[in-house]
Design a protein around this nucleic acid. Structure first.
Lengths: 197, 197
DNA sequence: GCAAGCCTAACGAACGTTCGAACGGGTGTC
DNA sequence: GACACCCGTTCGAACGTTCGTTAGGCTTGC
């Protein structure tokens, strides 16, 4: 139990926010899940919105920092893209609650704390730009066959992000099977990469 | 203004739920948008949850009923799929607020009115089954090249549903361009249909 | 005079948040 | 070793507000 109280709170709040939504969960419910009283939460976070901000920022940063650097060493564009998308799907599966909160409750920050929304969005943009760069380079190198790198990026992102909408641990596929199949759809089919392994 | 008061309420509530979320919008706010008092809403809906149910059911049924029958007359599987996906994207764009509520707040019904959740889910399943049938038939007829109709259906659905996550009227594409491009990605690239027009 | 439609008023509960006090372990002083 | 002191942590109680909902009465058109 190397968890600090602050981390315990973030963990419990993430789970509750992901399951019921930000506004459906009261501070007292979060405190109950940790085993303290509602008022004690304010020792760690000045407001409920700050708590949401901490969750969204942590999850966004954690994803970007662990995923992007790993692909630099792979030689082919198709290989880099495949590796990145695979890591994306697996990470989003492993941290699906954090990412669900990060995606769904962002507009809450947008309305009530615009500068924090922009902060998180700009981090997200780094990732999307990096992905688009890989695709764009692959097109220039004639490794991919598609004429619009921007639209292809959006399509591929929409595809891989949709896994969490339907995937269940108890279903007919394992997450590894889905990751493989979706990467193949994105790299070989959508982008038309031919010689990849 | 052929709108009945009941329809006005549904319209206003849809807009507010889509923008702020179900729990963030109070009955008084909905009433304000219509120009009546909060208590008057209970003349039309017995509870807030019933109002949400009406929105989710209406939007789901309207989509299914207007989309599915249209494609029966088209000869090729690829043509049917293309037409269906195109209508899907355009419909989801035109009714993006209703569909956003229908997608995001469904778990609210799932927790607090399970039988209504099942009702809506079963309608949705009709559509997904119909889509999978088209894809499956196309594979059997060797018009599509993919080995898993179920996974292909999920991928294609995830792809077309993702448009509303990023599309903005003021962006660089029109919705028609996006619909064309995404249909092409789904039909020609993911499913590998060759001779289509 | 009936019913639909809308109102005011109020209910108890829950909301996010604030406040001041109490607890308990560690440190410094005698 | 005993003592006072501090500070991180938690608590109970309460603040004012808003929540979903109910009850009852007024107006209007058939």
């Amino acid at each position: 139990m190397g968890l600090s109280r602050r981390e315990e709170i973030i963990l419990a709040a993430t789970e509750l926010f992901a399951k019921h939504g930000f506004h459906a969960v009261g501070m007292r419910a979060i405190a109950d899940a940790v085993g303290i009283r509602g008022s004690s939460l304010y020792h760690y976070f000045p407001s409920k919105l700050d708590l949401l901000h901490a969750i969204a920022l942590d999850s966004t940063r954690a994803f970007i920092e662990t995923q992007l650097p790993d692909v630099e060493s792979i030689p082919s564009h198709a290989g880099r893209l495949r590796q990145l998308l695979r890591a994306h799907i697996l990470y989003f599966h492993e941290h699906r609650q954090e990412e669900a909160v990060g995606l769904r409750e962002l507009q809450e920050l947008r309305e009530n704390a615009p500068e924090r929304y922009i902060e998180i969005q700009s981090i997200r943009r780094v990732y999307q730009t990096g992905l688009e760069r890989i695709i764009s380079d692959g097109i220039d190198a004639a490794e991919f066959v598609y004429d619009d790198a921007h639209l292809a990026t959006l399509a591929v992102l929409g595809l891989v992000n949709s896994v969490n909408d339907w995937f269940r641990e108890t279903g007919r596929y394992s997450i590894d099977e889905v990751a493989d199949a979706y990467c193949d759809i994105a790299v070989s089919r959508i982008l038309g990469a031919r010689s990849v392994r």
